[in-house]
């Protein structure tokens, strides 16, 4: 009885961890396969599929598109989100709660609905180009993260330091850049990383808005797998995971990322 009980918790822990990390390990292992198809256990060992990733033209294009959307969309979301967060946390505005809710909506509403709605009621009627549509959609999807994370760091920052800066001769705007921005830098960086990852991993909205010749990385991977079933998708996944881990590790190492999330 006690033996069974003492084994129970470690067993559950092991299963949970195996469930979380297992698939990832399988994919990593599969990317080093020497075989022709995506399979586990891998057949032999080679780097040929990792090398092949860099030769697939559509991967290069979609990686470029995803990077553009992740970086550009996140920057745009921050440009909109930082002033919005500032207004929401510093002033008692009528309707502030409504704005907060609307801004958070893309997190709560399923992406497939957002994608369909954008396509049907914005992209098609207004004849918006695919790249622009994707950019706008990604910006909107990242905005909630930007507003939340930046608001959190603004709320931890005393507002009287701005008044102190003004009384020492700074303009209101100058005070924002001189004493507010440096103190919410960590929050902005966290928002950037969250936004980047959210955008890069985005599937449902991008699925609706992608079009001929313009695809994001995950959409392109799905499309590729429908035609070719070789381990290069696994290899690409491993490389992308490595990139994500690298970014988060660097952020944690240099800026203490986990303090802000």
């Amino acid at each position: 009885m006690t033996v069974a009980r003492s084994l129970f918790i470690p067993l559950v822990l092991f299963l949970v961890i195996a469930f979380l990390i297992g698939p990832f390990l399988i994919i990593v292992a599969a990317s080093f396969s020497a075989g022709e198809t995506l399979a586990f256990p891998p057949q032999g060992f080679s780097l040929r599929w990792i090398a092949k990733v860099f030769t697939v033209e559509s991967f290069r294009a979609s990686f470029g598109m995803s990077m553009f959307l992740a970086i550009g969309g996140t920057l745009a979301a921050l440009v909109l989100g930082i002033p919005a967060s500032y207004a929401l946390s510093r002033y008692k505005l009528p309707g502030a709660e409504i704005v907060r809710t609307i801004v958070s909506a893309p997190i709560i509403v399923p992406g497939i609905i957002v994608g369909l709605a954008l396509l049907r009621y914005i992209v098609v009627p207004f004849q918006i180009g695919i790249t622009l549509a994707l950019f706008m959609a990604h910006t909107a999807l990242i905005l909630p993260y930007a507003v939340r994370v930046v608001s959190a760091s603004l709320e931890n920052l005393r507002s009287d330091i701005e008044e102190a800066a003004v009384l020492l001769g700074s303009s209101r705007l100058g005070a924002f850049f001189r004493v507010v921005m440096p103190n919410i830098r960590g929050g902005i960086l966290s928002a950037f990383i969250l936004g980047f990852v959210t955008s890069f991993n985005q599937v449902p909205v991008s699925l609706f808005l992608s079009g001929p010749g313009v695809r994001t990385m995950p959409i392109d991977m799905i499309a590729y797998m429908e035609i070719v079933f070789d381990p290069s998708v696994a290899a690409l996944s491993s490389l992308l995971a490595l990139m994500s881990i690298g970014i988060v590790f660097a952020a944690e190492r240099f800026l203490g990322f986990s303090r802000y999330v």
């Binding site: 920052l157 005393r158 009287d160 330091i161 008044e163 102190a164 800066a165 003004v166 009384l167 020492l168 001769g169 700074s170 303009s171 004493v179 440096p182 103190n183």
Partner: peptide
């Protein structure tokens, strides 16, 4: 405007710039 008044203020919570 406050930034052109030559008036100093020591805040209750000091309001030092933490960075």
């Amino acid at each position: 405007p406050a930034n052109k008044r030559a008036v100093g203020l020591v805040f209750q919570s000091y309001a030092l710039f933490p960075h």
